[in-house]
Nucleic acid binder design. Sequence first.
DNA 1: TGTGAGTTGATTTTT
DNA 2: TCAACTCACA
Length: 780
Amino acid sequence: MWSDSLNSLTSAQREAVEHLDGPLLILAGPGSGKTRVVTHRVANLLRHGVAARQIVALTFTNKAAEEMRSRLEVLAPGGGVWMSTFHRFCARLLRQHAATVGLDENFTIYDTSDSRQVLRRTLDQLDLDTTLYTPERLTGAISWAKNNLITAAQYQPRSGHPLGHVVAKVYPAYQARLLASSAVDFDDLLLHVAVMLRDNPEIRATLDERFRYILVDEYQDTNLAQYTIVRGLSIDHPNLAVTGDPDQSIYGWRGANLSNILDFEKDYPDVHVVKLERNYRSTKRILRVADSLIGYNQRRKAKGLYTENDEGQSVSLVAYPTQRLEAETIAARIAEEIRAGRRRPRDFAIFYRVNALSRSLEFALRDEGIPYQMVNGLEFYQRKEIKDVLAYLQLVNNPRDDNAFLRVINTPPRGIGKTTIGHLIAHADRRQLSLVDAARESGLIEALNKRAAVAVAKFMALYDQLSLVAAAPVEEILGHVLSASGYQQFLIDSEDEEDQERLANIEELLTAAREFDERHPTDAPLETFLEESCLVNDTDAWQADDDRVTLMTLHASKGLEFPVVFIVALEEGLLPHERSREANDLLEEERRLLFVGITRACEELQLSLATYREFRGQRRRTVPSQFLMELPRGEMDVVEPNATARVEWETSPDEHAWDESSGDELGDVDFNPAEFDATDAEPVTPSPAATDAAAVVRMTMTPLTTAAELHRVQTAEAPRVPPEAFHQGMVVRHPEYGLGKVVALSGNGIRRTATIAFASAAGQRKFMLASSNLRPAKSE
DNA sequence: TGTGAGTTGATTTTT
DNA sequence: TCAACTCACA
């Protein structure tokens, strides 16, 4: 059976799969079956007797890790191989060795917005003038330093760099604050581990011994910290296999260092290099377009991409008069293809450089009734209500977490305002206490008036009450938080419609917690749940099997493929982005970004631009992207902007009267189609009618499978009210104790348990729902 | 202390 | 355009 699957590999792929010991570099072009090779190789290692726990595969996204895990499961069922993102891997290592870097093992991980708040407070404390430098620029500079393994103590401003001098002051203070709260930011996860490996030879050796075989995916995107970690773990056992493609390095702005992959052969002179150059994904035409474009980059390793696939259709390049027409025409074309039965929604993807460009596309798709899913900005775990509730958990998990304390102390409002909080902070600073400890001494703070002191004391009572259930299943803890803090009631009482939506989101969070509890029935430390919730990202929520058109940024598209791809807004300032003009290596990265986008397409590809585009609420004349001049004319089908404009005007002049005065400017674009061999330029006609496709649903997070429903045990004494009928905050009736409210829920199936707070003297009691006499009360 | 209006300022990509 | 932050007022 094994040899069968081995036979299905090409000789180059096989070469990589059969390499066992020693360093290995797999240079894998787009669509070359890289994941297949990596998973086969892991299976091969296992087959040769390498223990699963000695292998670790590191990726950048959870999605990539998940993909590998599921594909390996097919080849070598049973698992046990650790596949994880760098950040999660580091979080786990750091939990085990927290003390060596000055953290508690229950440290909190701050996401970007948490870190920014900490930085803000640091700036307030230092009394620095923030008008000169935005917190964003400062966090950026600190992040850069951390990714380059420059610790707060080591940071030296470069002379002549005013920003550097501010950073030199802020960085140490910011870092001290994080440590005092026993918290880390994303970059710290890597930095701490890298420093730990460097400064503790015995720990390094132990881990090197433990992780004998290391695989790194997307190696071209590693930064110095990641490089150091991987190297540190591959000294005694240099069985390091990395895969990557220098042409797909698109995270330079995050500190990714292209040299890591370009110089891999210098780091490991006896490295075995395998090149995967055959593409199984795209048509010949698409591949030639991609190849031509990327050829303009200087800093790369030339490689010969080729494919045995069909020639395919020409790649089309369309210049639309306006952004709106661009969106509408694309949507119309998609609708037409679906209506004609040629394609399904999931065959299409639309990519853009920045999230802000998604709006007009969304509107157009919605108008056509086309279902779509968007991988975008405001993700679930960034929502206010979710962050609020999670902050309670963070504080329960880590009492030193000042950031969480400040978030929840007056959420929902409980009369603890700015002044009171100011006093608490001052007291904490004076006595070198965490805010929780300072709040405990609120009676001793003279500046506090009685009312404030009482309010703080009440909050502390709440906190202590929540701490008591810290070891319970996460769903149950969450339930107590929602009930005891009054947060849920606060939202229920609210008039604001938005708050009703928030309740629904919280409901989703409860479901997520329940699912987590199921996955971790025994070891369910709260911190693992918190870790999961802050290390997930947008792309993770993307679902391949949903039958919807996909909208995403070019960055998010890496690793995916679609039959038909549209890339919009190929305009100067957007692609390449204006910030990339300063330096050539930034420009090359933009080119790689477009390369990544182009190579996602299997069969059809359309690139487009608009002569006028909305920008900060204003209409702007655009300039075509310089990259357009780097595409091979022979492969392209160029649609003349004038023709497009004329057709559109005749179709519905009123609809598109975007600017009364600019009608005669329409054909006057800087983009000259004659530059291309546009022999058969054919105007794009929008389809007349929208299809009656399913309703558009904007995805907020992964729909969670209710495994409980599968598990449900139907016993003879099945309750008349099924356990699933009960939910958080619901009012119930008990024959003996009377009316009560669901405070918390936990467990599954017949073991599902509810904590009920009764209005009567019965107080709080726990019930097994399957065997209890509880009923939902009529009114809520 | 909490709310609301008004202003300002910033807008790449993500773990 | 839009979100976040400030300031004034109840």
